[in-house]
Design a protein around this nucleic acid. Sequence first.
DNA 1: TTAAACTTTCAAAAATAATTGAAAGTTTGT
DNA 2: ACAAACTTTCAATTATTTTTGAAAGTTTAA
Lengths: 167, 167
Amino acid sequence: MEFKEAKNKFVQTWGALGSQWGINKTMAQIHALLMVSNEAVSMEDIMEELQISRGNASMNLRALMDWGIVYKEYKAGERKEFFTAEKDLDELAVKISRERSKREIKPALKILKEVSTIEAKDSAEEQHFVDQTSKLYDFVLKADNMLDKMTEFNDNWLGKLVMKIMK
Amino acid sequence: MEFKEAKNKFVQTWGALGSQWGINKTMAQIHALLMVSNEAVSMEDIMEELQISRGNASMNLRALMDWGIVYKEYKAGERKEFFTAEKDLDELAVKISRERSKREIKPALKILKEVSTIEAKDSAEEQHFVDQTSKLYDFVLKADNMLDKMTEFNDNWLGKLVMKIMK
DNA sequence: TTAAACTTTCAAAAATAATTGAAAGTTTGT
DNA sequence: ACAAACTTTCAATTATTTTTGAAAGTTTAA
């Protein structure tokens, strides 16, 4: 396999994977492209490489910047803007989980808390509802916190975790 | 808030959350409904509660069973089938991560390995590509394994982890 | 074997999400 | 202040995904 083919395969695969996880395909593709580019890429070049419109490129770059995983860069003497991706994978993971937590998990937790705190009356049906949603609330909260802790430990998470437990 | 309202809110929220994570809304809603039902529910009742067609119910129930998180149940004397969800949340998490790993992560890893092992020639561009995709391969592999380990430890993962480290 | 009571399948329709492209907006240099 | 060189916005279009519903399939009981 030659470079161009490999690069294309990677970008396509990343795009497909993104779709399956609820991330728009183009957004994932742009991100993939920037991840494997050793220097910042202009909007023109992104449009050209991925065969997408200016509007599409603009909107998805904005979204990626909102997620905090793509940055604008300015080159001296050049009028146009260039873009780079966060290339440190630990940092990338931290940012993605922070954002997903903020945007999706936290709001879901709020609802879970609400619905799990209705008065259950006496019926087994309502008892079970309260019980199950309470458990779900605890579980999601725990998972969310765990993810947060894990990203905090980053690279050497296991070692640091042990240290923290020891002391 | 009364029971019916709470139940509906929960089902809707779970459906919306599912969409954002690449799971079809109805599938997530059916799952939510079964999760908080204290007894097995018939297809009729699912259709009625969620206001969906028979075909839709059938296909999404099949998908949920393929994921291993919903089971068929037969009631004595009744001709029709009833459905229940896996209600143990740890078990649910294990099954979901196993399936997503098998369906999405493993195939992605295969491609990552492929593209990261091209010969990099001399150009900085190609060097960077190989370097970055290799790192990504390692990272995804590590994350996938970690998730597997974590689910293995289940409930009291922290405690058991410490035990394992100690001995 | 027949028919009633179910479930599954899948082509067509509907709903949703992504994309385009041109007009409007912004920034920079002269 | 002007205009060139860009970027952003958003209504309309296109693509993708989901849903429907009726026909086909299956199972059970008599």
